[in-house]
Computed example of a mutant assay.
Amino acid sequence: MRTAPIGVVGLGAMGAGMARALLARGFRVTAFNRTAAKAEPVVRAGATLAATPADAVAAADVLLLSLAGEDAVEQVLFGALGGTLRPGLTVVDTSTVSPAFARDTAKRLAGAGVRRVEACVIGNPRMAASGGLRVFVAGDRADADAVSDVLDALGPDVRYLGGPGNASVLKLALNLLLGVQTAGLAEAVAFVEAMGMDRELLLDAFAGSGWRSPVLAFRADFMRKRAYRPAAFRAALMHKDLRLAAREAADHGVGLPVTERASDRFGALLGGGRGDDDAAAVVELRSAPEPGESPP
């Protein structure tokens, strides 16, 4: 067991869960979150609260990031921590970003002697807290092996996928499938309700059908209850990931028209002030968005 604490920056639903999983495995954790109140459950579980991101990493040899997107990662790594990153530190970045951003960030950190291990996680907050995530890993293999104890604490299925950006590709591909399927299930509900039937009839039939999957069943449960908070996967993050996938694909000459249309639907949720609802709230939209109405 490593003796230095692990710094954790970002205690949203997933970050807090991963911090708890690390604590359960016996790691010491020093954690920072921009909204200090969200850190309280993790502190009660045994973590030390840091006043700043720099304090979280001061005594650590591993920094785990769980941030909302590229802007937040940029601000933390090259803003708040820009003068304190030191050679020998390993950044385990679980944030969902574009493959291009992942590769560029790894290169910039390497210039400062800092290793970046891409660790894209698949699962929900409950799985994060129990150490039950799937972990897609990319970067230098030796760097990943050096933090294998940390990665193993996050979940039993840790897969090394090669060089920087590869884990981000696979994570976005799976989130693309989730977004499109969630929007499709929402439209099936809308169709049934437009025909004068209750959504319960469809969702009950869906539950016993070949179309059921664990992730869609999870979204269907939100739709059945018509309650979308606390979110397991916020609509704002779903929208962000679909846009990242579409943008990266376009940069490589590939169009993703179905993904872009699904992105418009989640964008409409954001436009209605529902970005913090679970992505399943897309079922409550009734008007079709005009192409391009999605917020940037």
Rank of each mutant, 00 (worst) to 15 (best):
G208W: 15
R286V: 10
D140Q: 05
A246C: 13
A280E: 01
L154E: 00
R108I: 02
L176E: 15
A205R: 09
A31N: 00
P87N: 08
A39Y: 13
P291W: 08
N175L: 14
L244P: 06
A288K: 05
G69Q: 08
E260W: 03
V76Y: 02
P99F: 08
V158Q: 11
D140A: 09
D251L: 08
G111H: 05
A188K: 02
D149G: 04
M18G: 11
G139A: 01
D204M: 10
G88I: 06
A72Q: 02
P41D: 12
V137Q: 00
A50R: 07
A21C: 04
R2H: 15
L67R: 06
A106T: 05
A72P: 10
Q181W: 04
T90K: 14
T84A: 08
G273N: 08
T48R: 05
F233Y: 08
V169G: 09
V150Y: 09
L77P: 01
G273E: 03
M197E: 10
A142Q: 09
F218V: 01
R247L: 04
R226M: 12
A153I: 07
V258Q: 15
A19Q: 06
N33F: 05
A190G: 13
F206P: 06
A236P: 12
P230D: 14
R116E: 02
V9Q: 09
M197L: 15
E248W: 12
L64M: 04
G292Q: 02
M238P: 11
D61A: 04
L185D: 12
R247E: 15
A235Y: 02
E40Y: 10
E200D: 10
L11Q: 09
A128D: 12
V57E: 08
S98L: 03
L89Y: 10
T96P: 02
G275W: 01
T52Q: 01
T105V: 07
G46L: 03
N175F: 02
F32M: 10
G267Y: 13
F27E: 06
G69Y: 06
G210H: 06
V137R: 03
R103K: 12
G253D: 01
L216V: 09
I122T: 05
